[in-house]
Structures are given as C-alpha cells and as structure tokens.
C-alpha cells in the first residue's frame, strides 16, 4: 500500500469514528466497537512477535491484564489521568516482555511459548493474592465525570481505543517495511543464516517482545474503565489469548494487514453471534476457525489473496 493511501485510510477511519459519535447515541454500538478494536490491537501486537519474528506467545492475556492492573493500582495509589495510565500500562507491559524475552529467548522457541503461558499464570496468581487491587474478588472502577466534548464516557473510550489501534497499525506497518522488519523476517526464516548475515538476533528478538508487550499493556490499560468492574477471571481470560492468536493466523501472519483483516472479520462475527446465538457459541467459533484456517490455509486470508493475484498476473 502506498504511504499516501495508507495515511489517507487511517485519517478516514478516524474521521468516521469521530463522526459516529455525533450521530449515534446508542451505547451498545460503542461497546461492540470497543471490543473489536481492543481485539484488533491485541492481534496486531501478537503479530509483531508471532508473525514477523516467528515466536509464539500464548500469554497475551497476561500482558493485557498487566496493563489493566497497572491502571487499577496506579489509579488507586496516585489517581493518575487516563493518558498517563495508558503510558504506564505500556511501560510495564514492555518491561515484562523484555524480561521474559531475556530469560527465555536464548532457548528454543518452544520454551519461549511455554514461558509466556507460565508468565500469564504466575501474574494471575500474584493478582489473586494481591488484595490492594481487589485480589480474586476483583474491584470496582469509578467512571470519571469528565469525558471531553463527548456525550458519554464510553464514546470517549471508543475514540481513545480507535486512536490507539490506528497507532498500533501504523507502527506495525512501519516496522514490517523497515530494516528492522527485514531483520525480524530473517530471524523467522532462519535464525542461523540471519546471524551469519550480521543480524543481531537476540537484540532484535528483545525489541520485538518489548514492542509486543508494550502494545498489549496499552491495549489493556483502559479496560478497567470499560468494564468498570475488573476481576482476574475477565482480565486474564483465555478468550483474549485465543483471539490474539486466532485473528492473525486467520488473516495471515506475514503481512501487517493480516491481523487487521482477521480481527475485523472474527471480531465482527463474534459480536453478531453473541447477540444472535450465545456467548459460548461465539467462543467456540474462534477455536474452530483457528484450527480450520491453520490446517487448510496456513498463509491466512492475505496469503490466499496474494496467491490468487499472482496466479492472475502470471
């Protein structure tokens, strides 16, 4: 995609989002859109490590919850405003990503995958035992009075999430076509050959886990305000982790557009099924779609589309 077209598209989406807030008042739509955007951001973040670098993260829910609980703790301790809480969530998520990468990325990729799962459960255990943020019972968040010029707080949260998600997409795209992105792709394709071509693989993998962790922390930071009542079960939900893997896998992991397409497709389907059928069914659908796609179309939607275009061109 040409830079002009890309930035134009981002601006158009943002403008459409802002326009929506002055036309539609029904809160249901903002709730649904927020959920889809949050999933998109998680998918884009997962793909930076999983798709670009080739390392699987099963602990996305852990990074997400780290962002959410950073908000809970700092809001209670210092009463920081939302923008600072988002930054803090990103910082803590990034640090955890860096630390986890430092501990496990020297080992085989499999151990990294298991370690991410471990991290999520260890953090969940900590939160369960940490009464300051509500422990296993959870805690309520007071919705602030102020919501800028928007009609309601949820409208403002929606626009915040839209901005964050668009930024994540821009970062992901910039990364994929840069020198850094080529280094990551070389690691994914063949780590030994990458080293021998001068790529500092460990350093680049750490950059990748840090960016992923930070993005997931940021995606989780506004979550307590969105749900108003956070408990470990919802913040660490396996559903978040499955979506973060399934959406890029379905959309296609090699291209920055893959997770976006996957997230919009799966996220929208989920919101529709949640309303028309049931929320358990909606959970099942992701799992089935994930398995079917990776078995039959491992390159995802973007990969299939590219193959089709190439065949037509040839």
């Amino acid at each position: 995609m040409k830079p002009v077209a890309f930035w134009g598209a981002l601006a158009a989406v943002l403008a459409a989002g802002l326009a929506l807030t002055s036309v539609v008042a029904n809160e249901y739509y903002y709730n649904a859109l927020y959920v889809i955007l949050q999933a998109t951001m998680m998918a884009v973040a997962w793909n930076i490590l999983g798709g670009f670098t080739g390392y699987v993260n099963f602990g996305s829910a852990g990074f997400f919850a780290i962002g959410a609980y950073t908000t809970v703790a700092l809001n209670k301790a210092l009463g920081l405003p939302l923008p600072l809480l988002i930054l803090a969530g990103g910082a803590v998520g990034g640090l955890v990503g860096l630390g986890l990468g430092y501990l496990t990325l020297r080992l085989k990729g499999v151990y990294f995958a298991i370690a991410t799962l471990a991290m999520a459960i260890v953090v969940e255990t900590l939160v369960n035992n940490w009464s300051y943020v509500g422990g296993a019972k959870g805690s309520y968040m007071l919705t602030p009075e102020k919501h800028l010029w928007f009609d309601s707080y949820i409208q403002m949260l929606f626009v915040v999430m839209l901005l964050l998600t668009l930024s994540a997409v821009a970062v992901s795209r910039a990364l994929s076509s840069s020198r850094l992105g080529r280094g990551l792709a070389a690691i994914r394709d063949d780590e030994v050959a990458a080293e021998c071509a001068g790529v500092p693989t460990l350093r680049l993998k750490l950059v990748s886990t840090t960016v992923m962790g930070a993005m997931m922390g940021i995606a989780g930071a506004p979550f307590p305000y969105f749900v108003t009542y956070v408990e470990p079960g919802s913040a660490f939900s396996l559903f978040i982790a499955v979506n973060a893997i399934a959406m890029p896998m379905i959309g296609g992991t090699a291209h920055w557009l893959g997770p976006v397409i996957g997230a919009l497709l799966v996220g929208t389907t989920q919101e529709i099924v949640k309303v028309t059928v049931s929320s358990e069914m909606n959970v099942l659908i992701v799992g089935v779609m994930l398995v079917v796609f990776i078995t039959l179309a491992p390159q995802g939607i973007v990969g299939v589309a590219r193959k089709y275009l190439r065949r037509r061109a040839a």
Partner: peptide, 18 residues
C-alpha cells in the same frame, strides 16, 4: 513451530468450550 503450536492451542480451546 508456529502453526503446529497454534493447532494444539486451538484443539485445547475447542475441547474446553465443547
């Protein structure tokens, strides 16, 4: 390393939800 891992993750999830 990527799809195979995700495959078992998906299976686990399907079994649990069913």
């Amino acid at each position: 390393s990527l799809s195979g891992l995700a495959f078992f993750f998906g299976l686990m999830f399907i079994i649990e939800v069913v």
